[in-house]
Amino acid sequence: MLVVMKTPIIRVKDVHKSYGRGPNRFDALKGVSFDINEGESIAIIGKSGSGKSTLMHVLALLDAPTSGSIELEGVETSTLHGKSLNQARNKTFGFVFQQFFLTANSSVLENVMLPMKISGVKRSERKQRALAALEQLEMADKAGNKAVNLSGGQKQRSVIARALVNNPRIIFADEPTGNLDTATGAVVEDILFNLNREHGITLIVVTHDEDLAARCDRRLYIRDGLLVTDTTEVAA
């Protein structure tokens, strides 16, 4: 088997994250290390409160680790500030959350265009790209609807369209099917894995659903802020 050594897209080295100070201090992550390669699909799996979301937030540069380092494409992320940090967030990541986070009274199109508005894409191009992304998710006919009037599955598809629209390298999905019924959840899963396979987008899914985790290339088991199992290491 031919193994091409590449810089991992994300390299996590001994990351700690604590909340609070003094006697209230809580260590949500207690030294986590692993690499994620471009194009992989990874499940971060563990019980509620185990630190999955905390890990994802740190990986997505939404929060800084208390100690340890995170490299994004070989760049130490603690060196990123202000504009470069915002650019990394805007251009590299797409987010899919369990609670959707759609602006309820805006149209689906407006919601999908938001990341491009933030990155300063021209208005006409914004619209065209947002419609293309909605088309891809078979949501083009709902572009003009208010987000509040959509079903759960439609909302999550809109969210995925929004996550896609800036051509991200990595999509973070925090419990993406948590608020959906099984059938709808399965459809959303298919969409996400399809994006991973067809477009080579790295997929990082946070979940406590074993079935969803099983569909991923790799599973990182987290318990009490520690990485207990990494399936690649198990396999090796």
Binding site: L62, K83, N86, A88, R89, F95, F101, P115, I118
Partner: peptide, 16 residues
């Protein structure tokens, strides 16, 4: 709050 958090997550600067 949510929307502001989301916009920040998507790379909107505090100044903006």
């Amino acid at each position: 709050t949510r929307e502001i958090g989301l916009m920040k997550a998507m790379g909107m600067g505090s100044g903006k």
